[in-house]
Measured scan of single mutants.
Amino acid sequence: MADQLTEEQIAEFKEAFSLFDKDGDGTITTKELGTVMRSLGQNPTEAELQDMINEVDADGNGTIDFPEFLTMMARKMKDTDSEEEIREAFRVFDKDGNGYISAAELRHVMTNLGEKLTDEEVDEMIREADIDGDGQVNYEEFVQMMTAK
């Protein structure tokens, strides 16, 4: 299944994987998964984290390695993001709930994920998604960005 991913997608997933893999040992533990999910405003229980890991832990060693992570991402993409997942993601970014993602809100979430971005990089990300040019990202623009192939 992971063989249907483009090189660009694999590179993006590698970057995402390293955000989860806090200690850089090449595997994601339940603790690391929990840290990232909490930084995104989720509050999973230990059991939920274990279930999430077990779902993709092909070799049964209790952690997720990069090939397992790729399989999980490929699977998720095949079920292409349901509207509800996209709306949920939008809410994570839209901290003040005004229906727009500002540069400050984007920077806040990315920083929580451990991504240190310059102001230019954040502005560039907003510009790429900002179709109507108002300097922020509304829900429609967010959907376009998330579903762009």
Rank of each mutant, 00 (worst) to 15 (best):
A2L: 09
Q4L: 10
Q4Y: 10
L5D: 05
T6Y: 04
T6P: 13
E7R: 09
I10A: 00
E12L: 03
K14N: 08
E15G: 11
E15L: 14
A16P: 03
A16G: 11
F17A: 00
S18C: 07
F20Y: 14
G26N: 02
I28E: 02
T29E: 05
E32W: 08
L33Y: 06
T35E: 06
R38L: 06
R38Q: 06
L40H: 15
G41E: 15
N43E: 04
T45G: 04
L49M: 09
L49H: 15
Q50Y: 15
D51V: 02
D51K: 03
M52R: 07
I53T: 13
I53K: 14
I53W: 05
E55G: 12
E55Y: 07
D57P: 01
D57Y: 10
A58M: 03
G62A: 14
T63P: 12
I64N: 10
P67I: 08
P67S: 10
E68L: 00
L70T: 01
L70Y: 09
T71N: 08
M72V: 13
M73V: 13
R75G: 13
D79I: 06
D81Y: 07
S82P: 05
E83M: 07
E84A: 15
I86S: 07
E88W: 14
A89F: 15
F90N: 15
K95R: 13
D96E: 09
G97W: 01
N98E: 15
Y100H: 13
Y100G: 15
A103V: 08
A103Y: 01
L106R: 00
R107V: 05
H108C: 03
V109D: 01
M110L: 11
N112K: 07
G114Y: 04
E115Q: 07
E115R: 00
E115D: 10
E115A: 06
E115G: 10
L117A: 09
T118Q: 15
D119W: 07
E121F: 04
E121N: 01
E121A: 03
V122R: 04
V122L: 08
D123I: 14
M125N: 00
I126D: 06
I126C: 05
E128N: 00
E128P: 04
E128Q: 01
A129R: 06
D130W: 00
D130G: 09
I131E: 00
G133S: 02
G135S: 14
Q136I: 07
V137P: 12
Y139D: 13
E140L: 02
F142K: 08
F142V: 00
V143K: 15
Q144M: 01
M146F: 15
A148G: 07
